[in-house]
Structures are given as structure tokens and as C-alpha cells.
Amino acid sequence: MEDEKKLIQFQQKIDQDIKIEPRDWMPEKYRQTLIRQISQHAHSEIIGMQPEGNWLTRAPSLRSKKILMAKIQDEAGHGLYLYCAAETLGIKREQFLQWLHEGKAKYSSVFNYPTLTWADMGAVGWLVDGAAIVNQVSLQGTSYGPYARAMVKICMEESFHQRQGFEIMVQLANGTKEQKEMAQDAVNRWWWPSIMMFGPHDSESAHSNQSLKWKIKRESNDELRQRFIDKTIEQGHHLGLIFPDPNLKLNPETNHYDYSPIDWDEFWNVVKGNGAGNRQRLNHHIKAHEDGKWVREAAIAYAKKSNLKQKSA
């Protein structure tokens, strides 16, 4: 009974766009959904550093190395903001890492694809960050306060990510024949994975309705996907590159681009961990975590010792 009354008041707050804060009452399912979604988002930022780290030493100029480094540093920051937001729901940082390492928590499967050429750094920034931005701009309006505030900060930082990617694409698309082919090849490989980043169609998405009602999500997967497609195609025309979908056409009735059916078998295959990079990404994260163990131990010992000194002084 008590809970039912609270549930009604909770929904009223949501409907009035009042943010929910960590110590407010919330339905257990709201908390669980947020724990899953925010930590998955955090893991994606952190794992997402790997395909780019792969190019740090091979980026073609000092300028591009510095830019790539700055982008990767931003992604680390995004992961940390999000872990902090997720921790306000009562789960410890250690637990989130453990769930990731045990394969219980997911991250965006787009980061399981390999980054084969320098053009992939362009395509990742333009398409993968571009898709992430569409999602994150929408999430600035999410109902959970700490998550919304993290999103505002992240969105401010993301805008250079997509631009630097697009700049790489412009350079290659206007370069030699080989460079142009490289750019086209990267678009061929990254177009579908970035469209799939928005998740299953609304009709197939198990959690979607409740999430929209609680304003955890503000727009549906298909709405966000369509927004991304519409604006990206126009950008692609400037590059003179072709998207790997013969059915991409502006529909004069809806004023949106139509696209071919998505190959969900491949999507689920990669989500379930059969992607080429899945094991590699996770093992790399586990190894880095274990290799850093002695640093954490030393830092704890040092903090304890200087605490004692302060007290006796």
C-alpha cells in the first residue's frame, strides 16, 4: 500500500520533469534499470579507448597523435563520470569492474570491431562518436539527476570527437586514389555497426516502454537511429563517399531517409560475445587491471601512513 502511494508520487515527479536524486525514494526496478544502463555506458567509454589506443603510436603526424591522445583521455573521463553516477545507486566501483570482468555487464558491441587502417580512426570519430552523441544529447534530459549532469558534461566534450573524425575523412576523401579507397572501405565497415549502436527496433526492445515512462530514456531507439541517419547522410555527401546500403533514399512523405533491413543476427552475435574483438578487449582490460594492482596497494599503504603521520603530528 505504502509503496503504491509512493509509486504514484514518483510518477508525478517524473511527469513534472523533477529530477530524481540519489536519496529520493525510487522503485526498485527504476534503480536496477539505471544500474544496468549507466554502468554499461561507463564500460563502453572505457573499453572504447582500446580500438583508438591501437592507433596512438601509428597516427600519421604529431598533430594527429596529440588529438587522438586528447580524445582517449576524454573517454577515460567520461567513464569515470559515469561510474560515479552509477555508484550513487548504492553499488561500489569494485563491483562494477567485477561484473564487467565476469561478463555479466555488457558494453557497446561496436567496440568489438577491429580498427584496421588510419581511415578507421576517421570513421570511428565521425560515425561511432556521432551515433553516441545523438544518444547522449537525448539523455541529457534523463530523469536521474547524477546521470543527466554527467551527460551534460560529456556532450560538451564530445563535440570535438566527431569533428576530428570528420576532418580525417575529409583529408582522405580528397587525397590520393588509395586514400580515397581507404576512406570508402572504412565507411563500408563502420556504417552498419554504428546504426546498430541504437539497439533493437522499438517493437523488439524489451525494456523500452517502462524506460520511456520513467524518462530514463527520452526517445526510442528507432527515433534516435533515424535522426542519426538523416544528418549523417548529408555529411557523407560532402565527402563524396557511398554508404553501403542501396536502399538509402529520402522519403518525400516522411522527409526521412529510408534504409534496408538491419542484419540483427550479426548484431546479436556480437552482443553475445562472438565478435572478433570481444575476448581480446575483455582480456586486455582484465590484464591492465591486474597489472595495476601493486599501484593501488602502494597508494593505499601510502595514504594510511600519511594519515598516521598527520594524527601524531
Binding site: K92, E94, Q95
Partner: peptide
Amino acid sequence: MSDEDQGIL
């Protein structure tokens, strides 16, 4: 790995 080694908030 579940020991608390991630520092304080």
C-alpha cells in the same frame, strides 16, 4: 578482486 581497492570518494 572484490576487495575495496578503488580509493575513497
